[in-house]
Nucleic acid binder design. Structure first.
Length: 292
DNA sequence: TATGCCGTAAACAGAG
DNA sequence: ACTCTGTTTACGGCAT
């Protein structure tokens, strides 16, 4: 059985104000959303064997990671080696690494009712992965092909009372949810560990405490039964408090999870999210907070 | 090499 | 008639 973190809309109001866009980042805590950039903190190595299916936070780690290293609280980010050759950022519209099954899964899970018509699945993919805005229409065929062929998805007849739109609604078969999650996790993990922030441009301005915010989040139990309506907890923390340090430069925003938190984290990850990942991560945070 | 998964293309039928 | 949706088949690439 799968249990999801509480609904993002019920997550903790942080100590800082956010200026995020209403969607898909509307659920983020303030430090996560300052300018729409979504941040993620937990590395797969920090997720217990069983918790990884109860928490989709890793999904947001679509940015490129620095080599993991402990960083004390409130310290400046490590300097990137100047000798490292700089390479242009991959285009934001590069093809996402996720299979169509994963994309469909994310789209459906990101929907309020956990069911979507094909048209809305298209729309979600386009909205979250700009690559498909300009891609030829063949991918839609692939989406339909996947829906039909994959056992993971089930077709539901529309309620006759809401005869708006063609076709049926599609949902995820609960028994295949763990498998889909695992595929997502592996895909994400693979692409995270194979990326290298060293190749990214150095921020143009120094990171100073002026751009730092501290957010404290309460612990949360992910069991569905435990989710309260007035929940003010965050899925990022599953035991005790965590402190998130937010850094912002003109070009990039970072969130640093200290290595000496009560979560017994071994490493710190600093994420830089490109525009595509920003969008996707926002929605995926919604997904992570799907609240079953 | 065999197998399975995935992406892509295409044909076809039915519904709106 | 046209578009969209859903199913099915086929094929090639890739990883295991």
């Amino acid at each position: 059985p799968i249990s999801f973190p509480p609904s993002p809309s019920s997550l903790s109001p942080s100590t800082a104000e956010s200026s995020h866009s209403p969607s898909p980042l509307s659920h983020c805590t303030a430090s996560q959303c300052l300018t729409g950039q979504t941040i993620q903190c937990l590395s797969p190595s920090n997720i217990s064997d069983q918790d990884d299916l109860t928490c989709l936070n890793w999904l947001h780690q679509r940015g490129n990671l620095l080599p993991l290293q402990p960083i004390p609280k409130m310290t400046a980010l490590p300097q990137l080696e100047a000798s490292q050759p700089t390479q242009p950022l991959p285009p934001a519209s590069s093809k996402p690494p996720y299979s169509f099954s994963s994309l469909i899964f994310m789209a459906i899970e990101d929907s309020p009712d956990k069911r979507l018509p094909v048209k809305d699945i298209y729309e979600w993919i386009v909205n979250n992965f700009p690559f498909y805005r300009t891609a030829s229409g063949g991918w839609r065929n692939s989406v339909r092909h996947n829906l039909s062929l994959s056992k993971s998805f089930r077709r539901i007849q529309r309620d006759k009372s809401q005869c708006v739109g063609k076709g049926s609604l599609w949902c995820v078969c609960p028994e295949y949810q763990p498998a889909l999650l695992e595929v997502l996790r592996k895909t994400h993990s693979y692409h995270s560990t194979n990326s290298n922030l060293i190749n990214k441009p150095t921020p143009t301005c120094p990171l100073t405490p002026d751009h730092e915010e501290l957010v404290t989040m309460e612990s949360v139990d992910y069991q569905q039964e435990e989710v309260c309506e007035d929940m003010e907890k965050d899925p990022l923390s599953d035991s005790g408090y965590i402190e998130l340090h937010y850094y912002q430069s003109q070009q990039y925003q970072y969130l640093v999870l200290p290595g000496d938190t009560e979560l017994d984290l071994e490493t710190v990850e600093i994420l830089q999210l490109d525009a595509e990942a920003q969008e996707a991560a926002g929605s995926l945070l919604d997904l992570a907070g799907g609240g079953y």
